[in-house]
């Protein structure tokens, strides 16, 4: 025996387990991927190109999809632990509670990034956006920065709502107000990139995103142990 793992090692062990479970079942990712394509298609078919230009509409579509497709995975994050009370196995393990949060959040981040990997090309193709690889990379960078904060908040609220009868309804109701500042900053940065404006403007919004990420990750990791009924 070498002794209980540190917080990051334990978090990685939990994240790897969650990702393995998701890879085996593909339940949440397939749902989120299908939702992504369907949502993009619905926006496309309800869009009047003579009234709104694709460049003006696409950032909004992209961020609506990011937000709601991500919620599908976040809902499952702690719900998967309830079957056979696997959560008890995590809570009696000799690891800090924060490691459970960080592990879950990291797995959720990979999930959300996977959904974005579907969403970005779908929206670019559907709206025929004239974007170069540089712009797509910039949007991907914005999406990653925003996802960290979204996932931190979403993971915390997933833990809080999982034992309630209306978990799937409560999670978006609680999380969306906290998503707003992140989605706003992410969408504003995306608008600037898609419009082909200088990246300095987008970088200002990126700084806002990084600040939100730091605050939300730290605050949610510290708050998580208080969501556990002891």
């Amino acid at each position: 025996m070498t002794g209980p793992p540190g917080i990051l090692a334990a978090a990685w062990t939990i994240a790897r387990k969650d990702l393995t479970v998701e890879l085996r079942t593909r339940a949440a990712f397939l749902s989120a991927a299908v939702f992504t394509v369907l949502a993009a298609a619905i926006f496309l078919y309800t869009w009047d190109p003579t009234a709104v230009a694709a460049l003006d509409l696409a950032p909004g579509v992209l961020w609506v999809i990011f937000t709601f497709a991500g919620l599908l995975g976040l809902n499952r994050s702690f719900a998967a632990e309830l079957a056979d009370r696997a959560i008890d196995g995590l809570l009696i393990a000799p690891i800090r509670r924060e490691a459970v949060f960080l592990g879950k959040a990291f797995a959720n981040l990979i999930f959300v990034l996977g959904v974005q990997l579907v969403a970005i090309p779908t929206v670019v193709l559907f709206y025929n956006l004239p974007l170069g690889w540089g712009a797509i990379a910039a949007i991907a960078g914005i999406a990653v920065a925003a996802s960290i904060g979204l996932v931190a908040v979403g993971t915390l609220f997933s833990a809080m709502t999982v034992n309630t009868r209306l978990a799937e309804l409560l999670l978006p109701v609680l999380a969306l107000p906290f998503f707003l500042p992140i989605v706003t900053a992410g969408a504003q940065a995306t608008v600037l990139v898609i419009d082909g404006r200088p990246l300095t403007g987008a970088l200002d919004w990126m700084r806002v995103l990084v600040a939100f990420d730091l605050v939300f990750v730290l605050a949610c990791a510290v708050a998580y142990p208080f969501t556990i009924e002891t």
Partner: peptide, 19 residues
């Protein structure tokens, strides 16, 4: 236990959490 994981993976997961 996690139904989607094998018996070995479940026990190995606990072993890793105990370091």
């Amino acid at each position: 236990l996690y139904p989607a994981l094998t018996a070995r993976e479940n026990v190995e997961f606990a072993a890793r959490l105990h370091g």
